[in-house]
Structures are given as structure tokens and as C-alpha cells.
Design a protein around this nucleic acid. Structure first.
Length: 308
DNA sequence: TGGCAGGATTACT
DNA sequence: AGTAATCCTGCC
């Protein structure tokens, strides 16, 4: 077991792991267990100490630093939001230590392919099912864990096997995207090197009439960019964030934008592409280049306030 | 127990 | 450009 000191305003493990950005974390006997970068990680916070162990002992200091993005100066970054409004202030106070994670892109792509028309509990289920069926087994602490399945494994999976993981209509997306990634039709490393705007348009692009990365729309693309490609200006806007924007930030929107946002929420229909894009731009202008952090705090607060 | 929550695609305007 | 119907599962 490795232990280091970390003040609680720099990291709050519970807030971070429960914030809907990563899936498959479980609390067992006071420790969080999950898979990060292909190995089982066991971790807990005890006062100002962080204690952890991992199934593969190599470089776990680096793994922790990278996964939790500990090189990013959180308090400094949040200073930018402090004088903006009471809502973001309340979110920052209540969820002190909430951090963005830096997941592996493939795990993030798979998770958010599953997220469409779904919810956190279901996504957890789907990821667990997929990992148990297609991932690699790891024995650790007398328990059995499974890694996130590789693109290769999923691209060769049968439709029935995928459907048995309860992913529903997303099975086609998963198989197709897994194929594109494993064959290098989509080059994840090249994507990561691009700037936010460019990387996003690549994720959403069509080539000679058909869409690559089917199942990845604007919101899923923003999640992938924010949670696994270090694009902090990404501002994923799902139904919850839409409600926050309507309730607390409507004064930032012009009349047309406000009208289409309210209409979407009232009639429970997705934001149109143009509306989604404009809301992101408005929020980026307001919160600045780390708008994605603000989004994560707002999300945590609105979910808590509506009892999720 | 049926109605509802949840996002992307497709076909249409 | 925006819009309506469809995809599937789990929860209450």
C-alpha cells in the first residue's frame, strides 16, 4: 500500500468518482476499486492522506498523477470562476476537490457510446457487462476484475453477444466504432494532438457521404474530449446542464437561443446542432478556457439538488 | 405495470 | 436550418 499526502481541497475522491465522468468504480470495504490504464486500482482517502494499491505495481505514482490530473493546479484554475455568480460558487463550495479525470480515450469513447439515451446506472451496467464478457480477467485482493474490452475484441464480437450486454441499439455503434479504431481508420493519438475545435469536427465528420464514429454526436464528442483528451474548453451539454443553463444562465443567451433551449426542454426533444453549438460558445465565453471544469461542478450540483 | 428518462441517426422540410 | 420518429433498457 502506498500513501501520500494530499490536501482535501486538491482532491475529493468520492466527488470525483461519483461525478458521472467515469464508470465501473465500486466502493468495497472503504476502498474504491476500479480499472485505470489496464490495471486494477484500489484507492481511498483518509484525512489528508491518499492510500492506494494496484494490481500491476509499475509506476503507480505516475498512474495516479495522470489519472487524477494532479499536475493541474485546481484551486488556481477555479479562481477564474469565483467572482462570476452564486450558483457556481455554491457548486465549488459543496464539491470541493472534485476533479476532471484523464481516462484512456478508448474507454471513454466506449462509455459515452453507451451513454446515449441512457443514465449513469445503466451505463455502469453496460460497461460492467461488456467488461465481463470481453475484457481481460484480473485477480486482485481475492476478487475478480475485468479490464475495459479492447477495440479488437469488440470489433469481432457477434451482435448477439453485444446485445446480451444490454446495450440495445448501441450494439451497432460499438461494433462499428471498435472496428474503425482497431483498424486505424480513426487514429486516436492523432486526434489527441489536435486543438479542441479541430478534434471535435473530426469526431463528427462524414467521409464520402457516411459518418465515421457513428453514435458520436456533439454531446458525446464533448465528453470524449473533456474526459480523455484534456480539452478543458469542452462543455458537454446534456439534459441536466440544459436545465442549469435555462435556470441560472438564461441572461447570457439571446432571445432566439433562449427560445430554442426552453422549447427543447419543455418538449423533451434534443437540442438541435446549431443550438448545442451556440450554448457551448456562450458558456465558454463566460467561464473561459476551463469551462469544462465549471460544467462538471454545475452537473454535480444540479444532480444533487434534484436528488439523483 | 406501464409510462417515462435518456442522445444520435435518419428522413424529411 | 431545424424537426419528428425511432432505437432499447431500467427504474419507479
Amino acid at each position: 500500500m502506498i500513501s501520500t499526502r494530499i490536501p482535501d481541497d486538491l482532491l475529493d475522491l468520492n466527488h470525483t468518482l461519483l461525478s458521472g465522468q467515469a464508470f465501473g468504480w465500486n466502493e468495497i470495504n472503504g476502498f474504491w476499486y476500479g480499472v485505470a490504464y489496464g490495471q486494477v486500482l484500489k484507492i481511498k482517502q483518509d484525512g489528508d492522506r491518499l492510500l492506494w494499491d494496484a494490481s500491476d505495481v509499475d509506476n503507480t505514482h505516475d498512474l495516479i498523477r495522470k489519472y487524477f490530473k494532479l499536475d493541474e493546479n485546481l484551486p488556481k484554475l477555479l479562481e477564474r470562476f469565483e467572482d462570476l455568480d452564486f450558483f457556481i460558487q455554491r457548486a465549488m463550495t459543496r464539491f470541493r476537490g472534485l476533479r476532471l479525470l484523464n481516462q484512456q480515450p478508448w474507454e471513454c469513447i466506449l462509455s459515452f457510446l453507451c451513454s446515449s439515451h441512457s443514465n449513469i446506472k445503466s451505463i455502469n451496467n453496460m460497461i460492467n457487462n461488456l467488461s465481463m464478457k470481453f475484457g481481460e480477467r484480473i485477480e486482485f485482493d481475492g476478487m475478480t476484475f475485468h479490464t475495459i474490452p479492447s477495440p479488437e475484441a469488440l470489433s469481432q464480437a457477434s451482435a448477439n453477444d453485444l446485445l446480451s450486454c444490454k446495450v440495445g441499439y448501441r450494439a451497432n455503434y460499438i461494433k462499428k466504432v471498435a472496428h474503425e479504431v482497431s483498424e486505424g481508420i480513426v487514429d486516436i493519438n492523432a486526434l489527441m494532438a489536435l486543438e479542441y475545435d479541430v478534434a471535435k469536427s473530426r469526431l463528427l465528420t462524414s467521409e464520402n457521404g457516411h459518418k465515421i464514429m457513428k453514435g458520436v454526436g456533439p454531446k458525446v464528442a464533448d465528453c470524449i474530449l473533456l474526459f480523455s483528451m484534456e480539452k478543458n474548453e469542452a462543455f458537454p451539454c446534456d439534459i441536466w446542464i440544459s436545465r442549469v443553463v435555462l435556470a441560472n444562465y438564461n441572461h447570457l443567451l439571446d432571445n432566439d437561443l433562449l427560445a430554442s433551449l426552453s422549447r427543447s426542454i419543455e418538449r423533451k426533444i434534443p437540442l438541435s446542432g446549431g443550438t448545442y453549438l451556440k450554448i457551448g460558445d456562450v458558456m465558454r465565453r463566460y467561464f473561459g478556457p476551463n469551462a469544462g471544469y465549471a460544467q462538471q461542478y454545475l452537473y454535480a450540483l444540479i444532480r444533487q439538488e434534484s436528488g439523483r
